[in-house]
């Protein structure tokens, strides 16, 4: 008779990170599909450019690190999220650069689980900074955020914002779709409600202070904020793992995003920069709150 010897436990839950990433990728693909319907071929070009850059970079870095490529499907989520937040009129080579930066930034920090910044947010912020100096209209018109901050506010139509008929990044326009996906993800326990609640509260508070209560809802629906809250702030690697830490993290993001967007710092890139700043603090919240997790002393 042969006996197997392994340490306990001997059974594990069926949920794996591959399943998690594939489920999230399907959700984000819904947003990208919405962008493809709205923007047709342009969106497809950017999707192909981003995804191919992500795949090539993933293979390249896997070979450098002596690992099998595509061990997990995180590159798929990064590529799709990146496509969703890209402006529609961006040249294809910028999309390629963005894809490369996103995956490379993950591997330069030590691979999956070790990256400090959200790869898509980092890459989008760098692209945003690069485009800031250029004088061409990469959104193909005035975005709702631009109109709210500098233009005639009466031009804003809430129905258009909700249904995604306004000028926006590829996958961040249709708020209804994002909210539906949010409810599904909440039901599947892929995202946390406290992240949504506290970030929206912080955002609303800052917009109220700087722009008045009337502008809260239009501001919430413009500038990719809802998309970032549902899909990017929830990235487990770059957010906190404790409940209280998550609440603090989300509040900080809301406050930063609200302030930066209201004060028109970096325009459409503001929300991604806010996310990057929040990412820096998320390990700190966990360390700070570790004092409350010291276990229970057992008797001798």
């Amino acid at each position: 008779m042969k006996y197997l010897v392994t340490p306990a436990p001997h059974r594990y839950s069926r949920s794996t990170i591959t399943d998690m990433y594939i489920t999230i990728a399907i959700g984000v693909f819904g947003c990208v599909l919405c962008g493809i319907i709205n923007y047709k071929l342009n969106a497809i070009y950017i999707l192909l450019a981003c995804m191919s850059a992500c795949v090539i970079t993933e293979i390249l870095f896997s070979l450098i690190n002596y690992k099998k490529p595509f061990m997990d499907y995180s590159f798929l989520v990064t590529g799709l999220v990146l496509t969703s937040i890209m402006p529609i009129n961006i040249p294809w080579y910028f999309a390629c650069i963005a894809g490369f930066i996103a995956i490379a930034s993950k591997y330069l920090f030590g691979g999956l689980g070790n990256n400090l910044f959200n790869p898509a947010a980092l890459s989008r912020s760098i692209i945003g900074v690069m485009l800031a100096g250029m004088s061409f209209d990469y959104f193909g018109g005035d975005t709702p955020l631009g109109i709210l901050l500098t233009g005639d506010k009466s031009l804003i139509n809430l129905n258009d914002l909700v249904l995604g008929n306004s000028v926006s990044a590829i996958g961040t326009g249709c708020i209804v779709l994002i909210l539906v996906l949010c409810v599904i993800a909440l039901a599947l326990k892929l995202i946390k409600w406290e992240n949504i609640l506290f970030s929206v509260a912080g955002f609303a508070l800052m917009v109220c202070i700087f722009m008045g209560g009337k502008n809260v809802i239009p501001m919430l629906m413009s500038g990719s904020f809802v998309f970032v809250v549902v899909f990017m702030l929830q990235d487990p690697t770059t957010s906190s793992y404790g409940f209280s830490a998550r609440c603090l993290n989300a509040l900080l993001f809301g406050v930063l995003a609200g302030t930066m967007m209201s004060k028109n710092i970096m325009g459409e890139t503001a929300v991604f920069l806010a996310l990057l700043i929040t990412n820096v603090f998320s390990p700190a919240w966990d360390r700070l709150l570790l004092v409350f997790h010291k276990g229970v002393k057992k008797h001798d």
Binding site: I17, D72, L112, S240, G242, F292, K294
Partner: peptide, 18 residues
């Protein structure tokens, strides 16, 4: 696989550990 910091282990620990 590498830890992705999802925090599920923290939420299920009956002894309030991390």
């Amino acid at each position: 696989s590498p830890c992705i910091n999802c925090g599920r282990c923290v939420s299920v620990c009956p002894m309030n550990l991390v």
